[in-house]
Amino acid sequence: MNIVRRLLSNWLPVYAVLYVAFLYLPILLLPIFSINQSAVPQFPLTGYTMKWYAGLPNTPELLSSAWNSLIVGLSASIVSTILGICAARAITRYRFRGQRVASGLIMAPLVLPEIIVAVSMLLVLLQLGVGLSLFTVILGHILICIPYSVTVLISGFEGFDRSLEEASADLGESAWGTFRRVTLPMVAPAIISSLLVSFTISLDEFILAFFLSGTEPTLPVYIWGQLRFAAKLPSVLALGTLLLLASFMMLSIAEILRRRAARRAQNEGGVYA
């Protein structure tokens, strides 16, 4: 027992450091090689340049795939957030039969292998005779974004004291006015946070987009296509760096907003303690 504990306490920090390095070093390499002169991603570095970034706007396919990603991301995040609001409100406000089963099913896409989801969706869509397009990609992305939206929204809605809405009605406000002046401002951070998280997920998602997009690729699908050409690699690295930055920023903002919403709800509930 003691030996195990000593081994653990000696080696656990080492393991942790190695793990983090393994996880993040490759990601750090991306921005480094993206500003390297040489087209071959290799040490030693040959010099600083921004030419790979400068070249990006002159690639029409890249621009159109970025535009596709934007459309898919916006649609998927808006729809999954609206559906998420309904689900989160039902889960936090009401107690109903089959509640646990329902929340379990909503969360399931989180753990289903994405490739299985992709293949099954493809089969169903083909059976139904729905042609592949950005629309089918949006459908797939809504499916995988909903669990994230619901999780973020539940943490924003939890602790939302029902009597706040009653107090608003008591002070003469209509149902719509109450929603606009009380409910919305209180859950707005969670809603924005849900939009950002689902947009980020949709932006990075590859497997579903690969299976379900027709002739209009999203950014990750475009990047994958470019990897076949060695000469294009630096541009891909530059593009990847930009995507990474965008994702990181959006997720950070989302987390800050989520925490702010949760803190607010907690303060409100605090009086009972």
Partner: peptide, 20 residues
């Protein structure tokens, strides 16, 4: 007649102060 159209006002047990 719903609460928002009654000439009554309520002090809730939880106070229900709008936190925002």
């Amino acid at each position: 007649i719903p609460a928002n159209r009654r000439p009554t006002n309520m002090v809730f047990q939880s106070y229900a102060i709008f936190p925002h």
